[in-house]
Computed example of a mutant assay.
Amino acid sequence: MMYGLFFGDSITYGEYDGVFGGWVDILKRYALQKYNEGSNELILFNLGIGGETTEGLLKRMPHEMVARNAADGNIIFIGYGANDLAIKEGNYIVNTEQFKTNILTAIQLAKQYTQDIYLVSILPISKNIDGIEVASGKLRSNDEVLIYNQILKNIAAENSLHYIDFHSAFLDDKEVLLSEDGVHPNEKGYGMMAEIVIPIIENYL
């Protein structure tokens, strides 16, 4: 039995998807169905927390991994940035240098348990809120998304990690795949994310 641990924010958690519960929950059901059909057992844990940044990840990651360490191995997914890159009261919540440092620290923590580490890209945001301060006081822009995603891509390449590029998959159809708030996917978007990751999950079944 292997474990898959999905660390992330509300997009990992599946917020705003009242149909499927988000992409990770779709994958959980898929892995269970495959197990019932005779495949290897892969238990997936949705460890997404709404509003979390890489600062929060580092505080809880060691405890989460100790509690969920499978004898047959682990797969770790790290999906952060949508909150880190937001600007509030004129400052980034987590600036680029600190974001890079935090991701690298998280990778070192993850490597204590597995070499199977996946960095998850940040999604594009809707044109309706691009560069606009929303009710929460946060401002996000697609320019910042590209900068933070490039950090993730570089880290993945330099550390021989996997990079899951949801951003490219969403880019052309983002207005159809995002929910009303312009940040979170809708059920169609989450469904597409799950479809992209199913072939990865298949490798462990």
Rank of each mutant, 00 (worst) to 15 (best):
A86H: 12
G22P: 09
D130S: 01
Y163V: 00
G38I: 05
G79Q: 14
E97S: 15
D181I: 08
N95F: 15
I201F: 07
I103T: 09
I26T: 13
Y204V: 11
L171Y: 07
G81V: 10
I76M: 11
L109T: 13
N46A: 13
E15D: 00
E175Y: 11
L27W: 02
I129D: 02
I103P: 03
E175A: 05
T105Y: 03
W23P: 06
S39K: 15
E133N: 09
M2G: 05
N102P: 11
H184P: 08
D17R: 04
K188V: 10
N154P: 03
Q33K: 11
T105Q: 12
K28I: 15
L152V: 12
N36W: 15
T101A: 15
Q33L: 13
L104N: 10
K127P: 00
G131R: 09
N91Y: 04
S160M: 07
R29P: 01
K111V: 02
Y118F: 15
L47F: 10
T12E: 10
M192H: 04
N69Y: 03
N128K: 15
N83D: 10
V66G: 10
Y3E: 03
S160V: 03
G4S: 15
A135K: 09
H184V: 01
A82V: 07
L57A: 12
Y163A: 04
D17S: 04
V19P: 05
Q112W: 00
Y148Q: 07
A194Q: 00
D84F: 14
N203Y: 07
I43K: 15
F45H: 11
N95W: 12
I75K: 11
S179T: 00
S136P: 05
G182P: 01
Q115V: 09
K127W: 10
S10F: 00
V176D: 14
F170R: 01
L58Y: 04
I11K: 12
I200M: 09
I87A: 14
G73H: 09
N128Q: 15
V19N: 04
E180Y: 04
E41V: 07
N149A: 05
R140N: 03
F99Y: 15
L205R: 06
F99S: 09
Y190W: 07
E37N: 10
N74F: 14
H162M: 11
A86W: 08
A86I: 12
Y30H: 06
